[in-house]
Design a protein around this nucleic acid. Structure first.
Length: 729
RNA sequence: GCGCGGUUAGCUCAGUUGGUAGAGCGACCCCUUGACGUGGGGUAGGCCGGGGGUUCAAAUCCCUCACCGCGCACCA
């Protein structure tokens, strides 16, 4: 054989490092990430159907982790596939200020520097975090590029952009006008470390074994795991039907000896009490307990704060005032024991305590005057459309989980006592505590009592703004983008955001725009380390996706993340697997070398029909596979497609077809050679197209070397069609 | 307590209308063949968590139990 006359690049092994940056630049400069450019350049029709995927805004408080790697891979795969089908495809990238999350990260940074946010000027702190965020964000954007993401950077949004904030404010106002948002004194979960309240979701339940105390409260025995809350307990509650306590009447007063001396307690008969539990009698602490609060509200009982915002006891605790509850508990019990008021102590009481999901501090329920969204009406609307299957859940069991949550939804506290976030545009009355939404910042008097007002210093729960992301990013209500790309098609995100984010987007999307925000929710699982353990900095098992892409190439990383990774199921990231796909990228490269050098004197004709029987059989087999694969792609079963195309190229095309081609191309008649050569070129072309969404870099690079007339960039070529197999058979 | 998953080869996991179990990695044995040793050929390895049921036929459908995850929950 003569020296092959093919691109010398092909004579060396495939080098992802040399290729990827160059290819990404090629794509970016083509402008094809932007659907408008695709129309301008005649790649797609102006009338083409839109396909929209809004990228979950990346937290701008760190760098890319393995989970992001998965997100970028799956979403880019979906988007490239749709783009190759001629959709007017938009993948809109974004960054999230991530309110509390980022503030926590920043506070840790401050701590390391020996500083603290408390006592810092609000504006200074805000500015520092903003700088921190912006610095990170440029870093993150480069990392997203490294993953090959074909998102439209020209439409990038940040959750603190003016346009987004404006939309968020309008929504807040609308909710207020519709009486779906209210300011109220309600029990909220308060973190004494972070000095902010949470919604019911920012809570981690933790099982603990702690002593459980049975205390003598006058003639009764009450039980508690939290004696430090009991100072102000002056109501003793029992069920009206409880035969044991028939002699006591509702409202009856009883004098008794308590922690710091004699008190007068009032008997309350209430049905919202479990007779079976403990002794069937309890005292209530309305300021620091949800159930007690509700009873007190219903019965109009007094509420008194016992514990302050730092977790220290207030003057009502007498000699214990100023002491942290952690320290006080055992001392209080000691005192009660000395007074003979402890009946018994159960040392092995197993119960659940609510802790801050970030720092693990036990949350203190506190009554706070904050903004709440009335969720029931919003949830009902969402339930209706979910039950009608207007939104498809992948995997489908997330539908059940969502329904279960929506049916038991609680009002949503959206006030956060942190600086880093979107300020709540409202005034609070200094006299009566009334809250008034004030977008123009011109309210100077309370609308209820005429009292003086102050600006609400709180910020919105970050999920309140990100809950509006699909329509906010598209410029609701008037922009062309909104009209063209909303409702969006797919929301692809992590399973643990099902309540935090996805369900709230559905509710707020329906409420504001009257339409569902997306048609499909695709949940990916968590990325675990090779041993199946959760990655965390403290365990030191965090895998940086970029170290893997450096080592094995982005394509290898990407297809390794896809194959065998079913939606919703967590994925163990093993380096072996990624390495295997690096070999695959190289295999593809070598296949190309063979095909191109073996078919040098052939003009590839994609409409060639003069195939011999031998090739017709192979084409039928190949096209059946393509049909199968296309169907599975449309069903979002990428994990199967990746495996099948891998298997076909390697075990079938390379190991069998190429092997037998060696003889055919050397020894058979011209007809046979032509038929085989056309088949090899045609099949390689189709393999590249199918593989492109999975492995965009190597396929684009090879595409550039293919002897194809009038070719465009592979990223905007058309997904292979299979109608011709009928023509040929 | 309620809800949702999972349990298949040594490891990680596929298995979508029920029809004699698959992939990758790993292991072992061969092959210095001209696309590729980042390769090629081959072998071993699974009563598909246990027990019932439906069926001609069950990894697949139903019931039940066990174990492992994960959510939710106002039990003082």
């Amino acid at each position: 054989m003569t020296e092959p006359n093919i691109d010398p690049k092909l004579l060396k092994p495939y080098d992802p490092k040399e290729t990827e940056g160059r290819i990404y630049k090629l794509w970016e400069e083509s402008g094809f990430f932007n659907p408008d450019v695709c129309i301008e350049k005649g790649i797609i029709n102006k009338e083409a159907e839109a396909f929209t995927l809004i990228m979950p805004p990346t937290n701008a408080n760190g760098s890319l982790h393995a989970g992001h790697g998965l997100v970028m891979t799956i979403e880019d795969l979906i988007v490239r596939y749709k783009r190759m089908h001629g959709f007017k495809t938009l993948w809109l990238p974004g960054l999230d200020h991530a309110g509390f999350e980022t503030q926590v990260v920043y506070e840790r940074k401050l701590e390391k520097e020996g500083r603290t946010r408390f006592g810092m000027d609000r504006n200074d702190l805000y500015k520092e975090i903003l700088d921190f965020t912006l610095e990170n964000s440029s870093n993150i954007k480069n990392q997203v590029r490294r993953m090959g993401a074909s998102c439209d950077w020209s439409r990038e949004k940040f959750t603190l952009d003016d346009s987004i904030v404006k939309t968020v404010y309008q929504t807040f106002k609308k909710l207020y006008d519709d009486e779906l948002v209210y300011r109220g004194n309600r029990i909220v979960s308060w973190c004494t470390k972070h000095q902010t309240s949470f919604s019911d979701l920012e809570i981690k339940d933790e099982e603990r074994i702690e002593p459980y105390y049975y205390l003598k409260y006058g003639p009764f025995i009450i039980s508690t795991s939290r004696p430090e809350t009991k100072f102000g307990d002056k109501y003793v509650v029992m069920h009206p039907d409880d035969k044991r306590y028939m002699e006591y009447k509702d409202g009856q007063k009883i004098d008794l000896e308590w922690i710091n001396g004699p008190i007068t307690a009032t008997i309350i008969k209430d049905k919202n009490l479990d007779m079976e539990f403990g002794t069937g009698v309890m005292t209530i602490t309305p300021w620091h307990d949800q159930v007690d609060f509700e009873i007190a509200e219903r019965r109009g009982l007094e509420k008194e704060q016992i514990i302050d915002e730092n977790g220290k006891l207030l003057p009502i605790a007498g000699e214990f005032a100023g002491m942290h509850i952690k320290k006080a508990r055992s001392l209080i019990i000691e005192k009660l024991q000395n007074k003979g008021l402890v009946e018994k102590i159960d040392e092995n009481y197993k119960h659940v305590v609510r802790t801050c999901y970030k720092c693990g501090t036990i949350l203190e329920p506190q009554i706070k005057n904050q903004w709440f969204i009335k969720m029931k009406p919003l949830a009902l609307r969402a339930l209706e459309i979910i039950n009608q299957d207007k939104i498809k859940y992948i995997p489908d069991h997330y539908k059940k989980i969502t329904i279960h949550w929506l049916e038991n939804i609680m009002d949503w506290n959206i006030s956060r006592q942190i600086v880093w976030g979107i300020p709540i545009p409202a005034k609070i009355c200094n006299e009566c505590g009334n809250g008034m939404v004030d977008l123009e910042n011109n309210i100077i008097k309370c609308s209820k009592c005429g009292g003086s007002v102050r600006k609400d210093e709180d910020t919105f729960d970050t999920w309140f703004s990100s809950g509006q992301w699909p329509f906010a990013t598209l410029g609701y209500p008037q922009s062309n983008d909104f009209k063209t790309f909303y409702p969006t098609d797919v929301m692809e995100t992590a399973g643990d955001l099902v309540f935090f984010w996805v369900s709230r987007m559905i509710m707020l999307g329906l409420y504001v725009t009257g339409e569902i925000p997306f048609k499909i929710v695709y949940y990916h699982g968590m990325v675990l380390d090779a041993k199946g353990q959760k990655m965390s900095k403290s365990k030191g098992n965090v895998i940086d996706p970029l170290t893997l892409t450096d080592k094995y190439g982005t394509d290898a990383f990407r297809i390794g993340m896809i194959v065998g990774n079913t939606p919703g199921t967590s994925l163990s990231l093993s380096e072996d697997k990624i390495r295997a796909y690096k070999n695959y990228a190289n295999k593809l490269w070598n296949i190309t070398r063979f095909v191109l050098s073996g078919t040098e004197n052939i003009n590839y004709n994609e409409n060639f029909t003069d195939y011999t029987e031998r090739e017709k059989i192979l084409i039928k087999e190949r096209d059946e596979l393509i049909q199968e694969i296309t169907k599975e792609m449309d069903e979002y079963k990428f994990y199967i497609v990746g495996e099948k195309i891998y298997h076909y190229t390697w075990s079938r095309f390379a190991d069998v077809i190429i092997e037998e081609s060696k003889e055919i191309l050397l020894n058979e008649t011209d007809n046979d050679k032509e038929s085989r050569a056309q088949f090899l070129l045609d099949t390689l072309t189709k393999i590249l197209k199918i593989l492109h969404p999975f492995m965009p870099f190597v396929t684009e690079e090879i595409w550039g070397l293919m002897p194809i007339k009038n070719k465009k960039l592979l990223m905007v070529e058309k997904w292979p069609k299979t109608e011709r197999s009928e023509v040929l058979s």
